[in-house]
Design a protein around this nucleic acid. Structure first.
Lengths: 109, 109
DNA sequence: GCACTTAATCGTCTATCGACGATAAACGAT
DNA sequence: ATCGTTTATCGTCGATAGACGATTAAGTGC
């Protein structure tokens, strides 16, 4: 890892606490599914998220809260409903931080 | 996402269960620290991992087990000690899968 | 064989997660 | 104002995670 690589990494945030929080938000299949659903709808669609998963409405709402608190998803009301959007930059920042690990040379043994 | 992108993604594995398992393994600050430590030592060093964190030996051993079971770290005995190595490909595969979400167009609202 | 070092496992405890149904809160429409 | 729709929150429960010290297992060296 070069000096400038390190600088970029610091910008992006390699803080273990922070990275772990993001990973935690990603650590449930339903939440991955939600992100994939949102990624598929390039128009950030409302809460047919609720019908897209075999889980109770309250459960999905909770998953959305976790994703929102991690900054991976944003939401805003639209009439009586809600629109959920990906925040791709946050996910990209996380993968960037991880890449400094992924790009490490493999063990030579 | 193009057709060929999708093919790559499938190869790499966008299965939510699988992705969530990897994220789960990454979801603890101590485990992130361990990966960073291993990435810094380009020679995959033994268990001065144990002295690198303010945690009991048994706790760190447990974290290493989680990382090993997720395939992110490998280990082999060297004399009476142990050598731990990153498996960068596994981490890369995970970030690749995530990038299909990270590369999604941002919400236009 | 016996001591010594190192890592993994066990047992226990507390804290957090994830699921659900029920309820509340916000809003639009009539 | 009331009703229906949509989402968030609450309360509860069982399951899992994470920490630790103690113990076991594996390997080296005498």
């Amino acid at each position: 890892m070069t000096q400038s690589d390190r600088a970029i990494a610091d910008t992006v945030g390699t803080d273990p606490e922070h990275m772990a929080r993001i990973a935690r938000a990603l650590s449930h299949p339903a939440r991955i599914r939600i992100l994939q659903l949102l990624a598929e709808q390039n128009e950030c669609k409302g809460a047919e998220v609720f019908s897209g998963l075999p889980l109770a409405q309250s459960t999905i709402s909770e998953h959305l809260r976790v994703l929102r608190e991690a900054g991976l998803v944003s939401s805003h009301p639209v009439g009586t409903a809600m629109t959920y959007c990906l925040v791709p930059e946050r996910i990209a920042a996380f993968t960037d931080a991880l890449d400094f690990v992924a790009d490490a040379p493999a063990c030579d043994s």
